[in-house]
Design a protein around this nucleic acid. Structure first.
Length: 425
RNA sequence: GGAGAGAUGGCAGAGUGGUUGAAUGCACCGGUCUUGAAAACCGGCGUGCCUUUACGGGUACCCAGGGUUCGAAUCCCUGUCUCUCCGCCA
């Protein structure tokens, strides 16, 4: 959501920012609508002021038993004009809001220019991909051979892009999630949260899934949405609030299921559990003082990287270029984990600073003690991590020649000491 | 699912059609007093938008959206949420 006042004052900057995003809008168009909107608004207010005066006079006249017919007559004429001004104003407001809601966030100055993912910039790498004495398998081959990853039965229930995990593999997924939550809560200062997974329209507008991306999510028959990420619920907690700056930052983490229609990705990642309609993810959301969001993005990214380091999974961190940065974000780091079976790095986390973009939509503000002015908070979100993809990464990186999988040391406490997952177990 | 009650400022709580953005109390902020603090007293104390160089002025908001009326926190309708009782239920 953009600030029309700012656009009015910085039209060239807005146009430059939008062209960076390939967004088809100009400040001039918005300013025209805004000018007419404000003209009507002023007119409307003047009419209301007149109405207030007259009705007060009528009240007085009646009290004194005087005749108020001429005042009543003037009021009759006012009514229609007020209604007209009101309707015109409402229409323009709606038109302007919808436009302001429909265009992507302005990018941070540090975001590199680029057309697509090929122009993302690698920031750093951690770990060295292991050498295998055999040809490493992909996760679905490993899982099916173990008899613990069952796509066929899931398809019977729900169609494609679903999976059933069994036995120790199901437990491994649970262990991963627990491990992540514990790390973020005990060492990274996030508050553990469980949230609804069904939300109303407002929440989806607040974080930017609506109005543009309705087709990416699932909607229920009673007009609710299955959350595509708990960023939606965690972030929208502060919608409409005015928060004391002293209580910031707020850091929340949650383990939830995420639901995505994957409309438009037909044919991509059709095998295995890389891309599912439903997956579990540990999310990290921060609500921060507007001056702190740059630092918080670095911190959050590090929190996500820490998960991989503790698990001994090689990764690289990438700064997304202008063409690859998502709608709501002003800056995004993707973390990609090494998958030996695929022989390449795949996205496992995405950490974004949305600045005040979401806060403006949600009307979430903060104020310093004794200060009269409010400011919009900044909101950030990051996966920490996608549990399903992390399971894949563990399987592929810790696979052994016989198809068994070693359990990473960090997960041993969560696996009841089980050190290896194999078909005989 | 059935029956009922309710939603007012940070909190509590008045207000059932006329100058009410809204009494009162508490909390909070500033001041007087005090060696300091407390108490007492005085003053202040919501959010947004429009307008103005500024001081200021205007307007809207008493859950949300419609309606009645010259005029709505107050009357009517719809929705949302909360609470109580019954039924059902993990």
């Amino acid at each position: 959501m953009h600030d029309i006042k700012w656009i009015r004052e910085n039209p060239e900057a807005f146009d430059a920012a939008m062209s960076m995003r390939n967004a088809d809008i100009t400040a001039a168009r918005l300013i025209d609508i805004d000018a007419e909107r404000r003209r009507l608004m002023t007119e409307h207010q003047e009419l209301l002021a007149r109405r207030k005066t007259i009705s007060g006079d009528i009240g007085k006249a009646k009290k004194n038993g005087e005749n108020a017919d001429d005042l009543m007559a003037e009021m009759g004429g006012l009514k229609d004009r007020i209604k007209a001004a009101e309707d015109g104003q409402a229409a323009l407001n709606e038109q302007l809001d919808l436009l302001l809601m429909s265009f992507p966030n302005i990018l941070d100055a540090s975001v590199p220019k680029g057309a697509d993912e090929d122009e993302n910039v690698e920031m750093r790498r951690w770990g060295t991909p292991a050498e295998f004495a055999f040809s490493p398998a992909e996760h679905f081959d490993l899982g099916e051979k173990l008899g613990m990853m069952d796509f066929a039965t899931a398809a019977k229930l729900s169609g494609s892009r679903f999976v059933i995990l069994r036995g120790q593999l199901a437990r491994l997924e649970r262990a991963l999630a627990q491990f992540m939550i514990d790390l973020h809560v005990n060492e990274h200062g996030y508050e553990e949260t469980t949230t609804p997974m069904l939300v109303k329209d407002d929440a989806m507008f607040g974080t930017g899934q609506l109005p543009k991306f309705a087709e990416d999510s699932f909607k229920t028959t009673n007009d609710m949405w299955l959350i595509p990420t708990s960023e939606v619920t965690l972030t929208n907690q502060v919608a409409g609030d005015i928060i004391d700056v002293a209580s910031l930052p707020l850091r929340y983490t949650a383990l939830t299921q995420c639901f995505r229609s994957e409309a438009g990705s037909a044919g991509r990642d059709t095998r295995g559990m890389i891309r599912q309609h439903q997956f579990s993810k540990v999310e990290m959301v921060s609500i921060v003082d507007p001056d702190q969001s740059d630092a918080e993005l670095e911190r959050k990214t590090k929190c996500a990287e820490e998960v991989l380091e503790r698990l001994g999974l090689p990764y690289r961190t990438i700064l997304l270029c202008s063409g690859d940065t998502g709608f709501s974000a002003m800056k995004t780091y993707d973390i990609e984990v090494w998958l030996p079976g695929q022989g390449r790095y795949r996205e496992i986390s995405s950490c974004s600073n949305t600045g005040e973009f979401q806060a403006r939509r949600m009307n979430a503000r903060c104020r310093a003690q004794g200060d009269k002015k409010t400011r919009f908070v900044h909101t950030l979100n990051g996966s920490g991590l996608a549990v399903g993809r992390c399971l894949i990464a563990v399987m592929e990186n810790y696979q052994q020649a016989d198809g068994s999988i070693k359990v990473p040391e960090a997960l041993l406490p969560y696996m009841g000491g089980l050190a290896e997952i194999s078909a005989t177990k």
